[in-house]
Structures are given as C-alpha cells and as structure tokens.
C-alpha cells in the first residue's frame, strides 16, 4: 500500500449483494481505505476482504457466474485476511449444513456452520454480548436469520459465545462473526480487524 498519512491498509467489501454500504462505512470509521469489490481486478487491489451479511446462496451464485471463485480461492490461499459477518462466515466455512446442495464453501475457516441455525426471521434477535477481547461495555450484537457455528477445528480461537455457541471466532488473520457489527454505531470489532492488519503492514515495513 502507498504510505499515506491516514489509512495504511485498504480493505475491500465484497459487493455482490447484502449490507455492503454499512460495512464500507464501518471500515472507514475504523480508519482504513475501503472499496467495494465486484470484479477480479478490484479483488487484486485490496489487502483484506470483508464479506458482508446477505444471502449466502445469492453471493455463491454470483461468485461463480462472474469468475470470482478462482481469484478468491487464490487470494485466500495466499493468506488474504478476512472479516466476515453472517452470510460471509457461511461462505468461508469448511462445511455448511442446511445449505443448498451446490452452495459454495470456500473452506478457509475450520468451521462447520449451520444456515438459519436459530430458525426463521421471527427468531432473529439482539443481545448484549460479552467479548473479552474488546472489553466493556458489552457489544450489542444483532443476529438476523443467523447461522450457528456447530463445530470448530484446530487453530480457531473462540472470542465470544452466546447460548453456549461460538458467535465470534478468530483463525489467524480471519475474524468471523455470525452477527452484524456493521448494523450498529459500535465499530470496535471493525477496528480490531483493521488494527491486526496495520500491525502486519507496519511489521513488514
């Protein structure tokens, strides 16, 4: 990245469908350069990728139809960090339960994730979530037709649990959530992600 005085990392938000605008705003509030990513060229131009909430089956289809699967897999294999929320976490999981049969599982996260694990929209909820990593106060976590993480593999650190299930996990430089921090004005989790990137960039410099 060019060494500006402001943002030192550029994060893309996968902008095929979903609450992209909220992620871009939250990333900018967390002091990074944020761009929408809909093409392979845009994907090449970012240091890290946020995958928003939305419909994982829709994103899965568009990733395949517009030639993004191979570039995404390559960047992930090369270690591109990700911040994923809800549908994004499903897409990055190794195993998806209750998906459509042909649904894309990019597999970078050692997670087994069940789609709509809490039920339908009527079971959507908000919750004051304790996340020791970011300290007090509790984080107002919004779960919308959220997935449930049913199994975690080696190297996955559980950052927060709700009802006995992990809802925020970290695996290396991937921060993965089943709720929507971008829907609130609390940007601590986006900041946590961006700070991790900055440390790596500064360490390499």
């Amino acid at each position: 990245m060019p060494g500006g005085t402001e943002a030192i990392v550029r994060v893309g938000a996968l902008a095929l469908q979903g609450d992209v605008r909220e992620h871009l705003a939250a990333l900018r509030a967390a002091h990074c350069d944020a761009i929408a990513v809909r093409t392979a060229a845009e994907l090449e131009a970012v240091d890290a990728l946020a995958i928003p909430g939305g419909e994982s089956t829709t994103m899965s289809r568009l990733i395949r139809a517009f030639g993004l699967e191979a570039p995404l897999r390559r960047r992930l294999a090369d270690g591109m960090p990700t911040l994923s929320t809800c549908a994004g976490t499903i897409l990055l999981s190794r195993e998806i339960r209750d998906g459509t049969g042909d649904q894309l599982a990019l597999g970078v996260l050692h997670l087994t994730t069940r789609r709509n694990g809490y039920g339908r929209q009527l079971d959507s909820f908000e919750f004051d979530l304790e996340i020791p990593e970011i300290g007090a106060p509790a984080f107002r976590a919004v779960f919308i037709r959220a997935p449930v993480i049913e199994a975690v593999g080696p190297g996955v650190e559980v950052l927060a649990v709700q009802g006995g299930r992990p809802v925020a996990v970290r695996q290396g430089r991937h921060l993965s959530l089943t709720f929507h921090p971008e829907m609130t004005a609390d940007h601590r989790l986006h900041r946590l992600f961006v700070e991790g990137l900055e440390r790596v960039v500064e360490g390499a410099a």
Partner: peptide, 22 residues
C-alpha cells in the same frame, strides 16, 4: 438474559438491509 430482544426495529429493518442489491 443479556437484554435479548426479538421483533425490535433493528432486526425488522435489518433483514431488509440484508436483502439489498438482490
């Protein structure tokens, strides 16, 4: 527990936010 709330404005409007671009 934990101030859990269903059917609030945020989750109602939130599902529509997740449908954006679709």
């Amino acid at each position: 527990a934990g101030g859990e709330q269903r059917g609030g404005l945020r989750v109602k409007r939130g599902l529509a936010e997740m449908l954006k671009g679709g």
